[in-house]
Design a protein around this nucleic acid. Structure first.
Length: 253
DNA sequence: AACAATTTCAACCGCGGTATA
DNA sequence: TTATACCGCGGTTGAAATTGT
């Protein structure tokens, strides 16, 4: 099958929209809606293809669009959602009211990606590979977290101080102190402080883990009994299965 | 002030999914 | 079932704006 071009190029305008064209499009859509983008430009008297009209409306003219700089909160949200959803800009835009997928895509490519690349380079200098956690099915020892009480807030092992606390999935990532990224900020095993099972291990459907060092946190979530990092990076990826009542041995940092 | 390099972002292109004849 | 048309999405482009020298 040979697809027909989206519009006959003959006589149709391309490139930036004029104020006059914008006004024609806005007033037409206000009166008649946009049930058929292909027919719209002809009916509205615009020398544009339907695709161009749709894009102009969706990305620029829609009355419910929020324009201007993205807030820090919005940028953090985009970064987190991108970790989960990848380049699914429309899905990300659906979580950010009044922002368009095109705008989010642009801000990702122009700001956020560069920022993260910079961050990754610095993190890779101090890269740490986490070993796979061991699961204890029955007995336990001093280096193993055991589930004694679902409501326990802290416990201690011989190797690390461990605390058990509630973690909301996709919780806030704390501000990272500038010193963390400095050349001098050498990684130190002792700065790893917690591997945190939340909500106890008694309910395998509600388990999540959080690993933190300095002020940087890695979040893990359980899905279908498996735990995996929310990050795509293989360096922090786990594939472990935990059943109700299991205990978990801390990873070696 | 002039020019070059870089960044931003609106708009375009092509593909895949879906509806329809 | 197949061919066609349309819509929406993600990748890419390129002009305009900004920044650096």
């Amino acid at each position: 099958m040979v697809r027909a071009p989206c519009c006959e190029k003959m006589g149709l305008k391309k490139g930036p929209w004029t104020c006059e064209e914008d006004q024609i499009l806005i007033s037409y859509i206000q009166k008649h809606g946009h049930s058929n983008w292909r027919a719209l430009p002809k009916q509205a008297g615009l020398l544009r293809c339907g695709k161009s009209c749709r894009l102009r409306w969706i990305n620029y003219l829609r009355p419910d669009i929020k324009r201007g700089n993205f807030t820090n909160e919005e940028e953090e949200t985009i970064i987190k959602l991108h970790e989960i959803l990848g380049n699914r800009w429309s899905a990300i835009a659906a979580k950010l009211p009044r922002r368009t997928d095109n705008e989010i895509k642009n801000v990702w490519h122009s700001h956020l990606k560069k920022r993260l690349l910079k961050t990754d380079k610095l993190v890779s200098k101090n890269k740490v590979r986490l070993s796979k956690p061991k699961i204890k099915r029955s007995d336990s020892n001093s280096s193993t977290i055991t589930q004694s009480d679902p409501d326990t807030s802290t416990c201690t092992t011989s190797r690390h101080n461990i605390k058990i606390e509630e973690i909301e999935s996709l919780d806030t990532m704390p501000e990272i102190d500038e010193s963390f990224w400095s050349e001098e900020a050498a990684m130190d095993d002792e700065t790893y402080t917690t591997m945190v099972p939340s909500k106890s291990l008694t309910n395998s459907n509600e388990l999540s883990l959080q690993c933190s060092f300095n002020n940087y946190e890695e979040s893990f979530q359980q899905s279908n009994g498996y735990i995996s990092n929310l990050d795509d990076g293989m360096d922090f990826w786990y594939d472990i299965f935990i059943k109700s009542g299991d205990s978990i041995e801390l990873p070696q940092f």
